[in-house]
Design a protein around this nucleic acid. Structure first.
Lengths: 134, 134
DNA sequence: CTTGACCCTGACATTAATGGCAGGGTGTAT
DNA sequence: ATACACCCTGCCATTAATGTCAGGGTCAAG
């Protein structure tokens, strides 16, 4: 199958398919005219790549275990677990940070509705600085 | 005060202070030699800018209400509320997405520990595709 | 032989704030 | 005057995956 068909089947753009190849994630054969020729298995391979990308892994991380997970159950690939654990730690940190920001925003928005719950008078620059509790 | 001192006082790099100026967030005077001369109020102004940046707002959004919040309580600045609400919606969506990914990672990690709770046999490519439930 | 659909490579753009360098001017103290 | 600290502008780099050109082959059908 040629690149256009693979793109149609997987939803990955042609540009992305070429990028995956440049990153060493997939290696199609070349016909005599230079066209890429993909095996039928490439379709599943591309879907797998895109799945891991959606998990937030980089092409470099994916390259580290792709061959393994394509040939056996994921849980048999020891390279995968540390990547998952590291990514999970990242994500939990991001969630924590976003949650702090969200709470701050919620407070500030509610102070528009409820007017001024802390002090009615004018707000000086010093008071403002103190309020920025980050 | 010159740019170096302002940088020391606020923690913003000199590069960033010049960037804030290019984005229209702060407008120091210029001395005859071309040096920027910041008023004492600039210190609070920069801290305010950095606070909003930490909230995840862009310089463009900050420019839209900075003059207002510098001169009166934030809750009197009607430009601020829609920005907050829009940002809050963004962040909640990000948290939701990250939470989905986290749950997926947690599942996958636990299946390493607990081996295979769903099906012991070999995993075909079709089964793998089905598992990628995104 | 021409049209049109497909393919190729290579290169630049995107995003937003910041880092960092080159090349040069200013100002003060010794 | 020489050193040293400070300032200036302008430019390129960063990040990661993707979009989007330009300029050019390939190939089937008419």
């Amino acid at each position: 199958m040629k690149i256009g068909e693979l793109s149609r089947r997987t939803g990955a753009s042609i540009r992305s398919l070429r990028y995956y190849e440049a990153q060493g994630l997939i290696a199609p054969l070349r016909e005599s005219n230079g066209y890429r020729e993909y095996s039928p298995m490439a379709e599943d391979q591309v879907r797998t790549i895109r799945f891991y990308l959606q998990l937030g892994l980089t092409t470099e991380q994916i390259a580290g275990f792709l061959n393994c997970v394509l040939s056996r159950p994921e849980t048999f690939c020891t390279e995968v677990l540390p990547v998952y654990e590291s990514k999970l730690a990242d994500i939990e940190a991001q969630i924590a940070q976003l949650t702090r920001i969200r709470d701050n925003l919620v407070d500030r928005i509610s102070s528009f509705r409820g007017e001024s719950e802390l002090g009615e008078g004018e707000s000086t620059r010093d008071e403002r600085s103190k309020r920025y509790g980050f």
